[in-house]
């Protein structure tokens, strides 16, 4: 990656305080285009707050967040998404009384014409957007294999846990994001499912030309697929580097794993 590339995502000395508690403390992160960048750290380290700051759920108390060099300051979550950042959730938040197809169509919301007249009267521009969105939704499902395509009219509530994770990713991809935030994409999965998830996360980056920011607890996942890793502890970034550097970092081992534990 040449030095001159504009970072895909950048946090500049971002601080978020809730009353007296500083959840995120002067954190700097720079994610280069095409990277898989992991944020790790113990519970309560501020990882979730970082995602909420990037997506506009929270506004930083201090500092700035930039997408491809452009500040996201003051943008509401729907506008941040329109700029090109989509996310999934640790505790899957699909719209459970909607079908798989409808969930992905909500993810594609921004690709539709916005004026009320086109929408209400299904004018040709709306119809073609709807048709295009449905085709695209099927493409996104087929990324996860024909089995997922067959589930398109199933209600999200009826899906298996691993399938719900897949649909959530497909829904996030629906908005054609530049940056995809994955919040513990393998949480609650068994080893086989985890291995499969690792596979599709890497494939996804190539196929959809993504930059991926990952929060992950399973070290074998993070170490295996990350280009770069940042470690948070008590809201502060205590280390950043290549996976092998992080694995050797004494401070990280102490904060993240406790003393006397060796990372496999």
């Amino acid at each position: 990656m040449p030095e001159t590339t504009i970072p895909a995502l950048q946090m500049r000395t971002v601080t978020k305080a809730f009353g007296g508690l500083t959840a995120v403390d002067s954190v700097d992160l720079t994610v280069q285009p095409g990277q898989i960048f992991s944020i790790i750290g113990p519970n309560g380290a501020g990882k979730a707050t970082v995602f909420n700051l990037i997506t506009g759920i929270y506004q930083p108390t201090n500092g700035d967040i930039l997408l491809q060099g452009q500040s996201l300051k003051g943008l509401t979550p729907d506008r941040v998404l329109r700029r090109g950042i989509a996310r999934t959730f640790q505790n899957i938040r699909l719209f459970s009384n909607m079908t798989v197809m409808e969930n992905i169509l909500v993810g594609e919301h921004k690709t539709f014409p916005g004026d009320l007249i086109s929408i209400i009267f299904h004018l040709p521009n709306y119809q073609s957007a709807e048709k295009h969105a449905r085709t695209r939704a099927l493409e996104l499902l087929s990324f996860f294999g024909p089995k997922m395509v067959a589930l398109k009219d199933e209600y999200a509530a009826n899906l298996s846990y691993a399938d719900r994770r897949r649909v959530e990713i497909a829904r996030a991809l629906g908005s054609n994001p530049k940056v995809l935030l994955l919040d513990e994409p393998t949480a609650g999965m068994n080893d086989a499912e985890t291995a499969e998830a690792v596979g599709y996360i890497t494939r996804m980056r190539e196929q959809f030309n993504l930059t991926i920011v990952l929060i992950e607890h399973k070290l074998q996942v993070t170490m295996g697929i990350s280009d770069r890793i940042a470690v948070l502890d008590y809201g502060k970034k205590i280390a950043e580097g290549l996976p092998e550097e992080i694995q050797r970092n004494e401070q990280v081992i102490e904060a993240y794993l406790g003393r006397k534990v060796v990372v496999e």
Binding site: T55, D78, L105, H109, K110, H122, R171
Partner: peptide, 29 residues
């Protein structure tokens, strides 16, 4: 028909269920 087949209808159903997740999917709440 509006609720079931248009993008705003879907947005309304999504918002009814989880306004924050809907906003994060690009729905203007």
């Amino acid at each position: 028909r509006f609720i079931q087949t248009t993008k705003l209808g879907r947005a309304m159903r999504a918002t009814a269920q989880d306004p924050e997740a809907a906003a994060l999917m690009g729905v203007n709440v």
